[in-house]
């Protein structure tokens, strides 16, 4: 029953990383789409919309990601709405990611000089067109480095799904640990795999920051 931690076991962990990557991609894509809507709503020319969205983002940013997960998985299931671990994980990471990305992108959109808005107004462009044709193309440049940087947080954040029994890299590590009882080797390998995914992203973010010569918009951890 007990066995050594060898190449077979390392391979098992490497394969488990695909769930981490898939979960991260889903969270990033859905969170990004929702985040874009939130970011635009945050600067929309309607005050009540701005207020509600801003409040929503602040509340989500004050909520532990683990609580979102537990609430959606255990809580909502008890309510009678059926959500499986996959859906609960994707949904909570989407909600969390969208709130943080919305704030990062709002900062970038607002960093586009006011004169651009005024010039667009002088050309009789409406809010939608100004945003789409003038502001967003400039904001994307600034947004790229912190967005790539935030992907690191998304990848690491998916480890929380292990706590609701979802089998990704962190949970696979825990499983492997019960049959080998070599915590240093197992969790060391798990760390290295995470590092191998995250470090290139961090480097890319830094490279982009230098190349695009944008200021220090710092990205926060989860």
């Amino acid at each position: 029953m007990l066995r050594e931690f060898g190449s077979n076991e390392i391979w098992f962990l490497v394969m488990a990383a695909r769930w981490t990557i898939l979960l991260s991609l889903l969270a990033f894509v859905f969170g990004g789409l929702a985040g874009l809507v939130l970011a635009i709503a945050r600067i929309a020319p309607w005050k009540p919309v701005r207020f509600v969205v801003s409040l929503w983002i602040q509340v989500i940013q004050a909520t532990p990601m683990l609580m979102l997960l537990l609430l959606l998985y255990f809580g909502v299931n008890m309510l009678g709405v059926r959500i499986d671990a996959w859906t609960a994980a994707v949904l909570s990471f989407t909600i969390g990611t969208s709130a943080y990305l919305a704030e990062i992108w709002r900062g970038c959109i607002q960093a586009v000089p006011k004169g651009q808005w005024e010039a667009a107004k002088a050309l009789a462009l409406d809010f939608k067109r100004t945003l789409a044709l003038i502001v967003i193309p400039q904001a994307v440049r600034m947004a790229l480095p912190p967005t790539v940087g935030y992907m690191v947080q998304v990848v690491k954040g998916t480890s929380l799904a292990a706590l609701i029994g979802f089998t990704e890299l962190a949970k696979a590590g825990a499983q492997m640990n019960t049959v080998t009882f070599q915590p240093v080797a197992v969790f060391g390998t798990v760390s290295i795999i995470y590092f191998a995914i995250c470090f290139p992203l961090s480097m890319l973010a830094r490279h982009l920051e230098k190349k695009l010569q944008v200021g220090t918009l710092r990205v926060q951890a989860l």
Partner: peptide, 17 residues
């Protein structure tokens, strides 16, 4: 190293390893 690995794994390390 710390910024590119999950907190959960760091926690496991400190307590179990």
């Amino acid at each position: 190293f710390i910024r590119n690995t999950p907190f959960l794994i760091q926690l496991y390390f400190v307590f179990f390893a």
